Amino acid sequence: MSTVLVIKAHPATEDVSNSLVIGDHFVETYRQAHPEDQIIGHDLYAEGVPEINSSNLDSWKKLTSGVTYQELSENEQILLSRQQQLQEQFIQADKYVFISPMYNLFLPNRLKMYLDLVIVSTKTWVEGAHGPEGTLHDKKAIHIQSSGGTYHHSDNAFMATLDMGDAYLKALLGQVGVKDYQGIYCEGNSHRDPDDMAANRETIAKEAEKVAKEF
């Protein structure tokens, strides 16, 4: 049995979200194809993400200086418990599904905040003789992303280099040991009328269905 961690990073809107529709279809298809697997989901905009700020840093400093967890304030304990829960889920998962739109050639800020929280030294990577060495092996990840422009499906190879968010996610996961990485991209949405967008979304959803069965 595998544990699949599904991370949605899209603000709630009344409009149809291409990435969420395709992502939900992927997850449901995966669930039907792998009924024995456990799926854990987080909606980063609905739940919120603990921000790394002075409160976090002060709490971590107290622990490293000898203060026990029980001696921390109630708010500090709640904050650290949430962080540790997210970190442990990330470490223990076998597969990762990231669902997000592209924002200004990058990832939504809450997805970046989540990654900063769960990818930490000594837990997901250690300093080796030749640089960082990942500790998360034999895992796989997929990024389901929608965008207004066309980057990965463009005839111009340069366009793919502009998708810095997807490249960052792939590189970061690779650093911690997750080498099996795929992307499903629903693109060119700002240039489509509603009917064309729906048709394209359906095409990409069928692609996601095929990938989900083998993921």
Rank of each mutant, 00 (worst) to 15 (best):
H143V: 04
Y185S: 14
L44F: 07
T64K: 04
I22H: 01
H42C: 02
F215S: 03
D138K: 07
L172K: 09
T68K: 14
A198Y: 04
D166F: 06
L86I: 03
A167E: 02
H152K: 08
L72I: 08
D116F: 00
L57G: 15
V27A: 06
G177L: 07
E209G: 14
I119A: 10
S154R: 02
A160H: 03
E88M: 14
A199V: 11
Y45Q: 10
L111V: 02
G66E: 13
H25M: 10
V4G: 01
P194R: 02
E209F: 00
A9G: 05
S100E: 00
F106D: 09
W125V: 00
Q175N: 15
D43A: 06
Y103I: 00
F90S: 03
F215Q: 08
S190I: 14
V21Y: 02
G48M: 12
Q175L: 12
E47R: 15
V97L: 02
K139L: 08
W60N: 10
A205F: 04
Y45V: 02
E133L: 06
M1G: 09
I40Q: 15
Y181E: 05
Y114L: 00
V178L: 10
L72Q: 10
T124D: 02
N53D: 15
I144H: 02
F26N: 11
L5W: 07
I7L: 03
C186S: 14
Q77H: 11
A198G: 10
V6M: 01
A208E: 00
I142G: 06
L72H: 07
S65R: 07
V27P: 06
K123P: 12
E51C: 03
Q77T: 03
H42V: 00
A9Q: 02
K95H: 12
Q84L: 10
Y69A: 04
M197E: 10
Y103N: 12
R82K: 09
K61Y: 15
T124M: 06
Q145P: 05
T150Q: 08
Y96C: 03
L173W: 10
G183D: 00
D163Q: 14
